[in-house]
């Protein structure tokens, strides 16, 4: 498969992201609000918007990297022979974690960790690890026994089997899980505004509270733009890493 073909899904996502990003720019958002019949209100200026976007990106990015590392590492551990007995436990914990929505995790972390970025980061990591772990375990378990037998037969060591057979074959499943985790990270960082984290969720929450549509639209469009662009970037990087 050529590189172009592999990264083509990123094009649509990236363009959507750019379009949404354009909507979040002050002049566009004001026009849009006027078209919706809103009284003209002050928009977030470009400086503040980019500051919030940068903080959002830092929070979601840090969380995502931690989630990806921990999720894949634990996933690999969970599929080793010695952990076979613990696998059903991991499955049931993962299923249970799914029942707790991210906003509730943020809320519960608040009294423990206080206001600001930390509770959000914790919520993000606690919540995002599970899908990545599950994806990694699922992907590695789906590797056909024939491929493993063949690898053993040609004399590969366990570490070689992991890096040359299991991980490459499981990669598409892991990538899907990583995409879910990235979108989740961007969304949770937005919800973190409720816990006082300063992100693109902040103008949305504030706008909802004081009926100020322009910053609300800007925050919403910019958050969505970040999610689409992040998703596109992930596909792009994954496509380029895999020659």
């Amino acid at each position: 498969m050529t590189l172009i073909k592999r990264v083509r899904p990123a094009l649509g996502l990236g363009l959507t992201g750019l379009a949404l990003g354009a909507v979040s720019l002050p002049p566009v958002a004001i026009r849009l609000a006027e078209a919706l019949g809103e009284p003209p209100r002050r928009a977030l200026d470009l400086h503040r918007l980019s500051e919030l976007a940068w903080q959002h990106l830092q929070l979601a990015g840090t969380g995502f990297i931690l989630v990806a590392l921990a999720g894949i590492a634990f996933g690999i551990l969970a599929t080793r022979d010695f952990a076979a007995a613990a696998r059903p436990a991991i499955d049931s914990i993962a299923a249970g974690a799914q029942a707790v929505p991210p906003v509730v995790v943020v809320a519960l972390a608040l009294p423990v960790l206080g206001f600001g970025g930390p509770p959000t980061l914790l919520a993000l990591v606690a919540y995002g690890v599970m899908p990545v772990l599950r994806g990694t375990v699922g992907g590695i378990q789906a590797v056909s026994p024939d491929a493993l037998d063949a690898a053993r037969a040609v004399g590969l060591t366990k570490a070689q089997i992991l890096t040359r057979v299991e991980l490459p074959l499981a990669w598409p499943v892991i990538l899907e899980a990583l995409r879910t985790a990235l979108v989740l990270a961007v969304a949770t960082a937005a919800v973190g505004a409720l816990a006082g984290a300063s992100t693109l969720g902040t103008p949305i929450i504030a706008g909802l509270q004081n009926q100020n549509t322009v910053p609300m639209l800007q925050g919403a469009a910019a958050t969505a733009a970040l999610a689409f662009l992040g998703d596109a970037a992930l596909i792009l990087v994954a496509g380029m890493l895999r020659r």
Partner: peptide, 9 residues
């Protein structure tokens, strides 16, 4: 892909 807070807003 759209965060729920953003979509609701």
């Amino acid at each position: 892909v759209i965060p729920a807070v953003a979509l609701l807003g």
